[in-house]
Nucleic acid binder design. Structure first.
Lengths: 211, 211
DNA sequence: TAGATTGTTAATCGATTAACAATC
DNA sequence: TAGATTGTTAATCGATTAACAATC
């Protein structure tokens, strides 16, 4: 096991490993070799072994990897067992969709509460979660200490809100606005730029002839 | 200008360039150098010039780049002026949120129609777009020839639906389900894996102490 | 035991950065 | 003109792949 800084390339492959292993696990597959996993995922066996070696030794010569065990190990590396507490800021259509559809518990997050400014939404209970007024935000965070905030708010309020939430102790953002928010070094923001992905799609279908 | 295969790394930076240039453009900024753009975007000036050189020569020595012009060029490279026609498959919470909030026109897409299986939704008009029955899908596509489909449907129907849509001539997928759909070489699928991004976030906030 | 497959070291490949002549 | 900044070539850095001894 090498003890080094883990590269972004490796980190970004981890959730994908987890997804495939979880799938195999649910199908009842017991063992898998780097070679056959690589075939499924369309990457080289070498890359898989190299990636895993950043975190430890999880396999066995001549056998491969135990699916349940490797799944659990990668889940652990990803922090799936840390029970992060999360609040949703903005209960509009997108926030609402996440409240309704997204299985936060499956990835180790506990959805605590949602906040909005609209009096039409405040007081509503969506999928067991109460929508609170933004006026209650400071008190609520001070009392319950969530560490992650989902930003499903209009673009122009994203940065001021992020600043406010950082001051309240939020450590991670799942940012669905189309702006990159700036946060201190010890806070992480994962941006979902819908526009960017749609443009990437546009790029690819605009030039399929030669490639 | 080098004539070569464009690497994925470059392609994935293009929408970000476009976003920054669009922002500068809207602020009325006329010119920018690779150095100052790099400072804003937190990348090297060298990388910007190297990236752009894949597509042409857009700058001028001693001056830099004209913001409006470079924005338009990158938009063109991304295919923003191709007026792609798009349909939404699945008008549940997430599909609904996209119908309501997302400015498809801004990125050169024309939202044509939405489809669902639920009789509660069929016939509804959301933001000017009619929700049609999935039974009408084949006829509709044959007649209107949309080239992109948004998949906001349950996981287990994603692959069969994708197959059906490919057969109908769809060239690109904006896939919001948590499975990777397999498509022919000349079709492109852009996957939005919410779970993966949330796990990446989890990884980062689970180990901030040392980094 | 023989075959399979790991973890790791070395080789290769590609992407990023630096340097600089060209020129606006 | 002198200063600034490009596009491109060369140098560096990092990531991926190949090879292989170790061993289950």
């Amino acid at each position: 096991m090498k003890k080094q800084k883990i590269s972004d390339a490796v980190i970004h492959r981890l959730p994908r490993y987890y997804r495939y292993l979880d799938d195999l696990y649910n199908k009842g597959v017991v063992r898998i070799s780097s070679h056959s996993l690589g075939e499924k995922m369309d990457i080289t066996a070498s890359q898989i072994r190299q990636d895993l070696s950043c975190f430890g030794e999880f396999g066995q010569q001549g056998y491969g990897y135990n699916v349940a065990e490797l799944r659990a190990e990668i889940g652990h590396i990803l922090g799936i067992d840390n029970d992060h507490k999360l609040i949703i800021i903005g209960a509009g259509h997108l926030g609402h969709a996440l409240l309704q559809n997204f299985d936060f518990a499956k990835v180790g997050f506990h959805l605590d509460s949602a906040f909005d400014v609209s009096s039409t939404l405040i007081g509503d209970e969506i999928n067991g979660v109460t929508v609170r007024s933004m006026d209650e935000l400071d008190d609520y965070v001070a009392q319950h200490h969530p560490n992650v905030a989902v930003l499903t708010v209009p673009q122009h309020v994203a940065q001021p809100l992020a600043d406010r939430l950082v001051a309240l102790g939020i450590r991670g953002f799942w940012n669905f606005t189309n702006v990159e928010i700036s946060v201190p070094e010890d806070v992480y923001s994962e941006d979902i730029h819908f526009v960017d992905t749609l443009l990437t799609l546009s790029y690819h279908i605009s030039r399929t002839p030669q490639e």
